[in-house]
């Protein structure tokens, strides 16, 4: 059966809808020892800022039932080293678009690169986005306005609709690439935030970032994380993410990249049927480096079994049953 798994995200064509979630995959170099990155729809890199960040004290992570809490604090080497080293690596590793689109009859797109950007202030976001403007290997930008683990910036920008609209339009003006805003689930009504990002000119949305949580080590009578609170990720949050993707897909017209606890093709398909145009695999890559590939193969197998010729038929399909 001829199947099309490629999707459009903000005008960029992906070979399949499966990518890696920012912060769980570095810039891909470490995972490239375990599989060919060229199989992914896109690599989403760990958050990068205009200057190097130290991150939080340790312990930075702890396991929780079907998930984990992290408070890395966006440690990163800064955009200059990122461009010279990480983007160079991706440029050398990822193949160009090829004409041999098996089955699709057209061009088989290459694996794309989505660069996640973080900052403490509007100026820092803009500075970083401007430094990335000339990077041809950065196909899309994902703006992290939702990290719960840094005191300034991060989530502070992501929980107030007016702030979201303002930062989105400022970044949109500075950016050469399409801009995806990454939303926090730690709000009362995420559709308000999604609409604000759309009003600010966002080309797409990524959701969800982690849910703020806490774990206490009862033997030590102390916090499990040095930062006290951390972001909850993993299969435990998957139903929350599906619900939020579903809500936002009904509230905005821009494409949504769904993430939060995806471990299997079934998890990814739920997200797609809720309205996501693409999905990201995050924490599950810590359990098995090749999880994203298993998700791609599983979606392929599902399409075969259900005679789905185009993955896009499934996007938001549960809405078809609504009256």
């Amino acid at each position: 059966m001829t199947k099309n798994m490629s999707v459009d995200i903000c005008g960029v064509r992906l070979k399949n809808p499966v990518m890696t979630a920012s912060g769980t995959f570095g810039s891909g170099a470490e995972f490239s020892e375990f599989f060919d990155l060229n199989r992914l729809g896109a690599v989403v890199t760990k958050g990068v800022s205009s200057v190097p960040w130290e991150g939080n004290p340790t312990p930075r992570i702890c396991e929780t039932p079907s998930g984990m809490l992290n408070a890395i604090g966006l440690q990163n080497a800064g955009v200059e080293v990122f461009s010279k080293r990480d983007l160079r690596f991706l440029s050398d590793t990822l193949l160009p678009d090829s004409g041999a689109g098996a089955g699709s009859g057209g061009i088989l797109p290459s694996t794309k690169v989505i660069v996640n950007v973080c900052g403490h202030s509007e100026e820092e976001y803009i500075d970083c986005v401007e430094k990335l403007a000339s990077e041809r290997r950065a196909d899309l930008l994902e703006i992290n306005i939702s990290c719960p683990n840094v005191k300034e910036g991060g989530i502070a920008f992501g929980t107030d609709p007016k702030g979201v609209e303002r930062i989105t339009s400022a970044v949109r003006r500075a950016a050469r690439q399409p801009v995806i805003m990454k939303l926090s689930p730690n709000v009362t009504d995420i559709t308000e935030i999604a609409r604000a990002a759309e009003a600010g000119g966002a080309d797409g949305l990524s959701m969800i970032n982690t849910l703020t949580g806490m774990k206490i080590d009862v033997e030590r009578r102390s916090f499990a994380l040095a930062n006290r609170t951390g972001g909850l990720s993993g299969p435990a949050i998957h139903p929350v993410a599906v619900r939020m993707v579903y809500q936002c897909a009904g509230a905005v017209k821009i494409p949504i990249i769904g993430m939060g606890g995806i471990r299997t093709a079934e998890d990814a398909l739920e997200m797609i049927m809720a309205g996501a145009s693409a999905v990201s695999v995050g924490t599950a890559s810590f359990n098995d480096q090749r999880t994203a590939l298993a998700v791609i193969d599983g979606i392929d197998e599902y399409m075969e079994r259900h005679h789905v010729s185009d993955i896009r038929e499934l996007t938001g399909c549960v809405r078809d049953w609504e009256t």
Binding site: G26, F31, G55, T58, R60, M68, N70, Q75, Q289
Partner: peptide, 16 residues
């Protein structure tokens, strides 16, 4: 020794 997640250098959990 430090608490680890990925174990392969990607997640930056286990720094000293």
């Amino acid at each position: 020794e430090e608490k680890m997640a990925c174990g392969i250098g990607a997640c930056l959990s286990c720094v000293c």
